[in-house]
Computed example of a mutant assay.
Amino acid sequence: MQPFHLTQAAPHGQMHAAPQNAVLQVRNLTKVYGNARTGVQATALKGLNLTVERGDFVSIMGPSGSGKSTLLNLLAGLDTASSGEIWVQGQNMASMRQNDLALFRRRNLGFVFQDFNLLDTLTLGENIALPLSLDGKKNQEIRPAVLKVMSFLGINEYLNRYPYEVSGGQQQRAAVARAVVHNPSLLLADEPTGNLDSASSRALLELFQRLNQTIGTTILMVTHDPLSASYSRRVVSIKDGQVHSELQRSADQQAFFQQILNLLAQLEGSHGVA
């Protein structure tokens, strides 16, 4: 892995079974939760298929209980599927041993969560450096990469500040910097604006657009918010554990936002939007 260079990361490993330009391919993914004591089972995902190509910015939406959070947990390697396959950069994550999977996740995936997940005992710069430090990079490689990504995200003046000394928006920018400093193949974001005010939310979403459009960062974001989703290139809606429909952005953001509202109305069983 190379430090942050404002270019999309090169593939890790050979592309064997996924389309050449696919960063992520999900095949017939099923997740069944069962209670061994009662024998009751609940199916969260039902043979879901999804492809995300390099340079895409995809929002995953759906009603509560649709399976979108389960999907993200499986993609992040935080849970295991009941059946199906998840291919990232041509590698089948389901076939990896635990140690190999942990290394693969660390090098190929970046994570942005609603709760920032910064370590209060480390400065913002030290938090951002963690992926590179864990990968054994030397300080002479780490510091320039950290400074470069912090400058790109507009938080370089907070290098030596602790999380509790900056605003929530600045903390989330630091979390984004930590997620992309190692040039991951895929950035996964789980309700990233959930703890931000409206101004900080817009700033973060514009930042995601900038990462996507300027650097080519591939982003998959789970969100319930149609305004957040309107910043992406594509919206995939999930209902009852399966892909329900997709929207491709072809017009301006306001028109795309209205399309998303109409889609959500359909998902909720309405006949339109007032």
Rank of each mutant, 00 (worst) to 15 (best):
A42C: 10
H16W: 07
N21P: 05
I60G: 02
Q25V: 10
T38L: 04
T51S: 06
N21C: 14
A17V: 00
Q14F: 13
Q25A: 11
L6W: 09
A10L: 15
R27I: 03
M61L: 10
H16T: 15
V23L: 01
Q25W: 12
Q41W: 08
N35V: 08
K46T: 04
A42E: 10
T43V: 13
V58C: 09
R54Y: 07
T30I: 14
Q41A: 07
G39I: 12
Q14C: 13
D56Q: 03
P19F: 02
V52S: 12
M15H: 09
P11T: 01
I60C: 10
V40P: 00
A18I: 01
N49L: 01
T38E: 01
F57Q: 05
A42Y: 12
H16N: 13
V32R: 11
G39D: 03
Q41Y: 14
F57R: 05
F57A: 06
R27L: 15
A22M: 02
Q8H: 13
H5I: 06
A18D: 01
Q25N: 11
L24R: 03
G13D: 02
M61F: 06
A42D: 14
Q25F: 03
D56E: 14
N49C: 01
N49R: 04
R37D: 10
R27M: 07
A9W: 05
N28Q: 12
R37V: 12
S59N: 06
S59Q: 11
P19D: 07
V40A: 15
T43G: 01
T51Y: 03
E53C: 07
P63C: 14
S64L: 00
A36C: 11
A22D: 08
G62F: 00
Q41P: 05
I60F: 08
H12N: 11
K46M: 11
V52Y: 07
V52P: 00
Y33K: 13
M61P: 00
K31I: 02
G34Q: 10
A44E: 09
G13M: 14
P19I: 06
S64H: 04
G39H: 09
R37S: 12
Q14V: 14
A44Y: 01
V40W: 13
M15Y: 06
T43A: 04
A22P: 03
M61S: 00
E53N: 15
A18P: 10
Q20M: 06
H5A: 11
A36K: 14
T38N: 08
L45K: 15
D56N: 02
K31E: 01
M61R: 12
Q25L: 13
L45A: 04
